[in-house]
């Protein structure tokens, strides 16, 4: 879990920090639970299938298909937790050379941009998600809709985190969770 430095900032900022942190915990906790469940299930299904196929020459048709729903959710859970932990890869180099006041302004604009982009994705996905209701998997009696709605969860979590970050930037500018830079090479 991420560390939390002593809260600073204005009175309003201080009183906001706790509820904001609670929302973050909800996003992070739900994301972690989704990761745990989907990763374990996918692992078991694939392992069982490999064993069956090599030992007995016949796999389970459903086990071969289940990742179609589970993988989007694994990714969505990961995206949600990554948002809270500030793990999304970005290019910070040029921002670093700006004076501090300007940096703060740019950072707030970035939060707004992330929020607008996430909401745009959610708002425009309607036709595809409606179309996906008719797309059934062949072995499991489930429609692709249940996979597609993971996009709502992932981008909803990103939008929520963008709002939290923005509120902190406005009301508690010195809040710093001291997150390490991450890379995934």
């Amino acid at each position: 879990m991420t560390g939390e430095s002593p809260s600073k900032g204005s009175g309003l900022g201080r009183s906001l920090l706790r509820p904001l942190r609670i929302v973050e915990r909800v996003i992070e906790g739900s994301g972690a639970a989704i990761i745990f469940v989907t990763l374990s299930l996918t692992f078991c299904a694939l392992l069982v299938n490999v064993v069956l196929r090599y030992a007995f020459g016949s796999g389970l048709a459903w086990a071969y298909e289940i990742h179609a729903i589970l993988f989007p959710w694994l990714v969505a859970g990961g995206i949600a937790v990554a948002s809270v932990r500030g793990w999304h890869i970005s290019v910070d180099a040029l921002i670093g050379i700006l004076p501090e006041t300007l940096q703060r302004g740019v950072a707030m604009l970035v939060s707004v941009a992330v929020l607008v982009i996430a909401l745009t994705v959610i708002r425009t996905s309607g036709p595809i998600i409606r179309a996906s209701q008719f797309q059934r998997l062949s072995e499991i009696p489930v429609s692709q809709y249940w996979g597609y709605i993971s996009l709502y969860y992932a981008f909803g979590a990103m939008a929520a985190q963008a709002v939290i970050t923005l509120l902190r930037q406005i009301f508690a500018p010195h809040y710093d969770r001291d997150l390490p830079q991450q890379s995934f090479s």
Binding site: H88, I89, S90, V91, D92, L94, I95, V106, A107, L109, V110, A113, V114, V116, I117, A118, T120, V121, T124, S125, G126, P127, I128
Partner: peptide, 26 residues
């Protein structure tokens, strides 16, 4: 360059281009 995360920068640019050209954003 203003440090929008890479994925969001890609999505933002795509959405903007589709919107300007009147293409289906879904």
């Amino acid at each position: 360059l203003v440090s929008v995360p890479v994925a969001h920068a890609m999505l933002g640019a795509t959405a903007f281009a589709l919107w300007v050209e009147g293409k289906p954003m879904a």
